[in-house]
Design a protein around this nucleic acid. Structure first.
Lengths: 65, 65
DNA sequence: CATAAATGTCAATTATGCTTTCCATTATTT
DNA sequence: AAATAATGGAAAGCATAATTGACATTTATG
């Protein structure tokens, strides 16, 4: 599961910590998502999509055959 | 987090067990999702969306303020 | 009504999302 | 170069997603 988090965050010129605060998660959670260490819960995915004004599908890329 | 799983499954005239097989999860997982006992992982949400040919947002309803 | 099919649900277990804490590495600025 | 800011990442712990198995209940069919 890839995602465009880092790209979208940088386009807004904010730090991981700022995004973390906005989403009410820890900075490590943002870092871990950006670097693909784990996938977000569906609730966090919805929060992220809402924050960026996009759909989950536009941010998270499902890569199954 | 509400969802339209039961409605969509019944519209296709299939059993929980059939949907479970198609999604490669247990029948209990489908039942638990339909009855709101827990939320799906984002990977399962993507699988479900793909199965029904819909987006995650069309199937799962985020109910935050 | 009786039988079987489908679903509900509980308990126990495993996997993982997310946390905090801590330290290392990589920019950035002075 | 030195100091600070920002990010990377590991470890331990907690909460919950997801599993299987077993059994109860509901719904459909003979």
């Amino acid at each position: 599961m890839k995602n465009r988090l880092e790209e979208l965050r940088k386009a807004r010129g904010i730090r991981q910590e700022d995004l973390a605060d906005a989403l009410e998660v820890s900075r490590q959670t943002i870092g871990s998502l950006e670097n693909g260490r784990y996938n977000p819960s569906i609730l966090l995915a919805f929060k992220i999509a809402k924050y960026f004004g996009m759909t989950i599908e536009e941010i998270f890329i499902d890569e199954e055959e």
